[in-house]
Design a protein around this nucleic acid. Structure first.
Lengths: 147, 147
DNA sequence: TGACAATAGACAGATTATCGAACCAATATG
DNA sequence: CATATTGGTTCGATAATCTGTCTATTGTCA
């Protein structure tokens, strides 16, 4: 006893999971009911100019084959499309398709909604500090902050 | 552009994953190399007095069957044991076994180490504020904070 | 420049994780 | 006490993931 403090990593987990759950539930309710959590975690990483499968894999920390597999499904469901990478004939860029843009728009709305609830609970000042601290923490916990 | 702020849920994800990765890597290096991430996520939830499989399932948000399956493996590997629940003859308590305690001790050490690095980066004041904010956020994002 | 290594992506097969359904035993409820 | 609920497991199916291997393209450097 005495040192029964929950570790910071675990404390970060609860909001993360809560947000993910809310967004997924809203997506399902809105008719995007064919997307799975694993697919969403890949989808989330696609940049505005498109992203390579191997980059998606690296950022999501799964094997290239897994990313290929999940992108296949996202493509079949109409959320993304694969286009040749003009700068490298070996590569292809995964880009968000029309249906994917709709899903992104919904996700952004829900995210803002949930953040508003959190800010309501914490207060504006503490929320701003939280964002600031997490952003700085990202510098040493996320190798891909450039994305 | 302009609204390109990363959402708070995702910002929470990076430290969470970083911590999980560090602990798992240290565990593997220390000879606890037969435990998987899925198993660890269940194991992590076991309370000091033991916890029922259905509670583990609920907290980890997996089906009872999945928890049973993972506890089976943890038991075979010597990390946990199942004992009858004295208060309910239907139930069994999953308890941490000797080898499990060793793994917990290692995990605690690594967690403290990583937190020290984070505190180094953020400063003590900001770290304390971060813990405070996340703890308050847990009130509305984790239904099982009692654990 | 041309041989060779490295990279991007995909396919095949095996393993792990997960869920839905059905089941048994014990407990709670009327 | 009859019935519903709860805790746990087993079975079968599906989803997700990895290792290994392959082709095509690109990068390197002697």
């Amino acid at each position: 006893m005495g040192d029964d403090q929950v570790n910071l990593g675990l404390l970060c987990f609860f909001p993360y999971r809560a947000m993910e759950t809310r967004v997924m539930a809203a997506a399902t309710a809105a008719g995007f009911d064919d997307i799975t959590l694993a697919q969403a975690r890949i989808f989330q990483r696609i940049g505005p100019a498109g992203t390579r499968v191997s980059d998606l894999a690296e950022q999501a920390r799964v094997a290239k084959q897994t990313a290929t597999f999940l992108v296949d499904q996202l493509e079949r469901a109409g959320y993304v499309e694969r286009v040749p990478d003009p700068t490298d004939a070996r590569a292809r860029l995964v880009k968000i398709a029309a249906r994917g843009e709709e899903a992104v728009a919904l996700a952004r709305r829900v995210e803002a909604e949930v953040e508003a609830e959190w800010a309501q609970h914490l207060g504006r000042r503490a929320t701003a500090q939280l964002r600031e601290a997490l952003t700085r923490l990202r510098e040493i916990t996320d190798p891909y902050q450039g994305t």
